[in-house]
Amino acid sequence: MPRQLIVDPNRICIKVKRLRGKQPILCKNEPEIIKKIISGAKLGINECQNQFIDRKWNCTTTRPHIRKILLRDSRETAFVHTITSAAILYEISKGVILPVCSKRDFYWKGCSDNVNFGYKKTKEFMDEGFRRRSDIKKLILLHNYEAGRLAVKNNMKNECKCHGMSGSCSFKTCWRKLPPFSEIGNRLKEKFDGAIKVMAGNDGNGYITESMTIKPPENDDIIYSEETPDFCEPSAETGSLGTKGRICNKGMDGTDGCDLLCCGRGYNRTIKQEEINCRCKFKWCCSVTCDKCKVKRKIYTCL
């Protein structure tokens, strides 16, 4: 199911007999929730690709490469699972509103996104379909699912509207809203950069950090157990597509710089001619007219 959600989310309920826990019940009785799960899985992959657009591994879903990636426990795999869980919770919560009415020093009477309902349904579908045995892969997967959910649940925003004579704001109507999902993606990308490597504990029912000098992971941290493969060259074994043909930035030190992205192999330079708007003028009233100018742009691609 974890791989199916990401590789082909439209088929998650095709073979109901293979599902476990509350998954078949949701498939049969709550088709609207299933639609949200499907759209959430797609939202998660889109955000993953936005976050990794300039990295050697750019969250491609090309088959069979994505299947190979998901078989590992690398930090890239962990991010995919975490962002998928967050996106499914986000989509379910966004589609269900609930009035929140609790009196404080101002009034809460707006309609809030129902993140608690989304959390419950996401957990039901994603966490309860596993066999009861415990192993490191399952523990890591469940931890990262929870980290994704917490990234949404713990980062809801307050929105308020003032009421009163002459803008006095004598009382407020407030509600809890989901932030833009790109903000969730940014937070999880930070967690990815600080992901914690773990290994199976001595009791076989838990995990510990690989190094005793590293603090145990919090519930909202991303964890993994395998080193990241080399994504420089194509590899059927690891799912790497390599970086040949990728566009890079010459002279930049970031992850999309030609030296880093091209893995020291060098790069080609091509000149591309484009048309852009130029010599734009404002006309009264109310339009803008522009000429078309041809410009040359240098493009660098990895060898």
Rank of each mutant, 00 (worst) to 15 (best):
W175P: 00
S170Y: 05
S170A: 13
K191D: 10
C174D: 04
N205P: 04
K172L: 08
Y207E: 02
W175Y: 13
G185T: 04
F171S: 03
I208G: 08
T173N: 00
P179K: 00
K197Y: 10
D221W: 06
E227R: 04
P216T: 11
V198L: 01
T209W: 11
S170E: 12
T228R: 04
I222D: 10
T209R: 05
G206M: 13
A200Y: 14
P217N: 03
E183D: 10
A200I: 15
Y207N: 03
S211F: 05
D220Q: 06
I222W: 03
P179T: 12
R187M: 14
M212I: 10
F192R: 14
K215W: 09
R187E: 02
T173Q: 06
N202L: 14
D221R: 01
E210G: 02
D193R: 14
L178W: 07
P180I: 13
L188V: 09
P217L: 01
I184E: 07
N205T: 13
R187C: 02
S182T: 09
D220W: 00
K191I: 13
K215E: 14
P229Q: 11
C174N: 07
R176Y: 11
E190R: 07
E227K: 07
R176V: 11
S182I: 15
L178M: 01
P229Y: 08
F171Q: 13
Y224V: 00
D220F: 04
P229G: 12
S211P: 00
D193V: 11
T213N: 03
G204K: 12
F181P: 06
E183M: 05
I223W: 01
Y224E: 06
P179M: 04
K189Y: 09
A200Q: 15
E226W: 02
N205H: 10
D221H: 09
D230C: 04
V198W: 03
P180Q: 07
F181S: 01
S170G: 09
D220K: 02
E183K: 10
K172W: 14
L178A: 10
R176Q: 14
N219F: 12
I214V: 13
N186P: 03
